[in-house]
Design a protein around this nucleic acid. Structure first.
Lengths: 139, 139
DNA sequence: CTTTTATGGAAAAATATTATCTATAAATAT
DNA sequence: ATATTTATAGATAATATTTTTCCATAAAAG
């Protein structure tokens, strides 16, 4: 968090209240919010902030490498301040997106290289199922 | 291909030339085209066909279960007439999307269930790297 | 405290996708 | 074959998401 200021300075970017709030919010949540969700969450504190600012800021944060973009298969993007490569799981009932903690599948890259001539750099893994809460409601 | 007619009949859908052409094109290619790409590819043969028809048709084909939708992380969707669940690999240079043939990762679902309380039904795996062609051009 | 420069916010634009409407083409029955 | 019924193609408008433009202003530098 402290090095965010340094990072911004290094890139000649201004660490404005809006940018700081968006980053802090992304750091604080595991809900992988969309731009709209970020906008709504910060509206109480920043009633004048526009959606465009959210989009511009997450774009900046992505370029700085402190936020990553998720594409779960919805019609919009979600954002995650956890930039480590980790798999995600989507509830097909309620739509929530969770991290799959501690599960590392980096070895898959090498495995896949046996099947293709690509030089593999990274991957994105999305699992789909029913979350505990929705399982309960099905009974 | 022959059973496509039967499938359409069963659902009281009309197998129009446009629909047939779109399905045939998807079957013929491994390029995983977007709606726009399908539209452009068929324009020589169907100059009057509108993009809306492409969207409506792929939606129909998806509902019939003969086409699947891919979300590689671009701002649009791609389509694949290979409906088996199989991983894809994206070239980060030229953007092409290939199948990873013969690589089956169904066992990952069970593995992931050890890390979460979700009931996992399916998954989507995307790998990112540099394709052979772009590797050559980097030298 | 002044100057420089990046930025926030409003509005418009761009892009992707969906919905509406009607003439028409495809399937079915005759 | 032909008539009839019904789904559909295509044009257009609508919607949703994201990006861009523009300018007053706030942040950093001198």
């Amino acid at each position: 968090m402290e090095n965010l200021a340094a990072l911004f300075k290094e890139k000649n970017l201004k660490l404005t209240p809006q940018r700081y709030a968006i980053y802090k919010y992304l750091k604080s949540t595991k809900a992988h919010p969309s731009a709209e969700m970020i906008y709504e969450a910060l509206r109480p504190d920043f009633p004048t902030m526009s959606l465009a600012t959210v989009y511009k800021t997450v774009k900046t944060l992505i370029e700085l490498g402190v936020v990553q973009e998720l594409n779960v298969g919805e019609d919009n993007f979600r954002f995650d301040a956890n930039v480590e490569n980790h798999p995600h799981i989507v509830c097909t009932d309620c739509g929530r997106v969770d991290d799959i903690e501690d599960a590392v599948f980096e070895h898959l890259n090498k495995e896949v290289e046996n099947y293709t001539n690509f030089k593999i750099k990274t991957h994105k893994l999305y699992f789909y199922g029913v979350c505990p809460k929705c399982q309960g409601e099905q009974n």
